[in-house]
């Protein structure tokens, strides 16, 4: 079960709205961290994902385990939020 979801995005990234749209269609709430507006959180995104890219979706489960999906990758995102 999903406890919360955070998506790291940028304003111009075309893949970020795709992730938001997918989660929205599933009725899932999420927090968005726009790295253009919050550049101080870039290191956090990098530390979590190991990648200098967006979108990065962080799914925290009820047992506090965490899954990280880098990019718009439905093959990984779908089971992670199921």
């Amino acid at each position: 079960m999903v406890k919360n979801i955070t998506i790291f995005t940028t304003t111009t990234c075309a893949y970020c709205p795709m992730v938001k749209k997918y989660l929205g269609a599933k009725g899932l709430q999420y927090d968005e961290v726009n790295l253009d507006k919050n550049p101080e959180r870039q290191q956090e995104a990098l530390a979590i994902s190991g990648a200098l890219t967006v979108p990065v979706t962080v799914i925290t489960k009820h047992d506090d385990t965490r899954e990280v999906v880098v990019g718009y990758n439905l093959a990984k995102l779908a089971p992670a939020v199921a």
Binding site: T12, C13, Y15, G50, L52, T53, V54
Partner: peptide, 17 residues
């Protein structure tokens, strides 16, 4: 790849402020 080499400026440019 994605750790310094990129193909999408609008996605990843913000990491290079």
């Amino acid at each position: 790849y994605a750790r310094g080499v990129h193909y999408c400026a609008t996605c990843d440019g913000a990491f290079y402020r």
